[in-house]
Amino acid sequence: MATPMQARAADPAGTARSDAIVEVRDICKRYGDLEALRGINLDFERGKLTTLLGPSGCGKTTLLKIIAGLVPATSGQIRINGRVVTGPGPERAFVFQDFALMPWATVLRNVGFGLELKGVPQAERHRIARHYIGEVGLSGFEEKYPHELSGGMRQRVGIARAFSVNADVLLLDEPFSAVDEQNRRKFQEDLLRLVDKERKTFLFVTHSIEEAVYVSDRIVLLSPRPGRVSQIIEPAIDRTAAPDVIRRDKGYLDVVEEIWQGLRQYAE
C-alpha cells in the first residue's frame, strides 16, 4: 500500500533536504484497547496546505490534536521547526470544528482572546483583532455576540482568532462541517485567498473529498482502524483559475475520482 511519496515522507534523509516545518515521527495513539493511530510518519512543508482526509474513525482529528499538543501521543515525536514539542505552543494555532467561541464575549474579544492570554495590551490586541475581522469579511460585527451570527460567520471568527496570534502553522479541524453547502463553497474560496495572502502553513482535516481536492496542495489519505497513512496525493491544480473553472477542470475531477477509488473500500 505504501506509495513512493509516503516513503519519501518517512525517510529521515529526505526531511533534512526539504523545508519541513512540522515533522511527525512514528506517532502511535491507543485509547485503552483501541488503537487509533499506528506508526504515522509525515512531513508538512512550509507555506503549503496539506489535508488529512479519510473516513470517520481513521484518527485524522486525533492526529491533528496530537500535532496541536492538545492530546498526548502514546509514542512518537512531533517536531515543529526542528524542535520536539509536547504541548501547545505559540507557533501553532487551532481552529475548532465546533468553533469554540466564548458565548459571553463579543466577536472583538473572541478574536483577540489568544493575544489577551499572552498579555498583549488592549489597544494593541483590538487593533490586530479588527484587522483580521476585516480580513475574514466580518467588519461591522465586532460588537456582536456569537449567538447573533450564523454558523459560517462564527467559523470566520474562529479563523480570525487563529490568524491574529500570528502562528506559523494553522491547524483546522473540519472547520466547515457545521456550515451549509452554499456558504461552504464561498468559505473555501475565501480560505484560498487567505492562504495566498498570509503565507502560512495549513493543516486541514476534512471528510469531504471535493473540499480536499479543491483547497489542498497535498492530500494525505488515512485508512481506518488503526489509522495509518495509505496514500499521498498532490493534486497540482492551477489555482489561478476562477473557482467555477477549477470545479469543472478535468484534472480536478480525475483526482476526486482517484481518491474515491482509494477510499470506497472503507465505505460501509
Binding site: P88, A93, F96, K118
Partner: peptide
Amino acid sequence: VNPSLVDMCRSFQGTRMQQIFKIIIPD
C-alpha cells in the same frame, strides 16, 4: 464546562489560572 473551550484556551497556551478565571468560571 464546554471541553472545546478549555482546549481552545490550552491551544493558545493559557495558564491554568487563565483557564479557570477566563474560561471555566464564566462558562
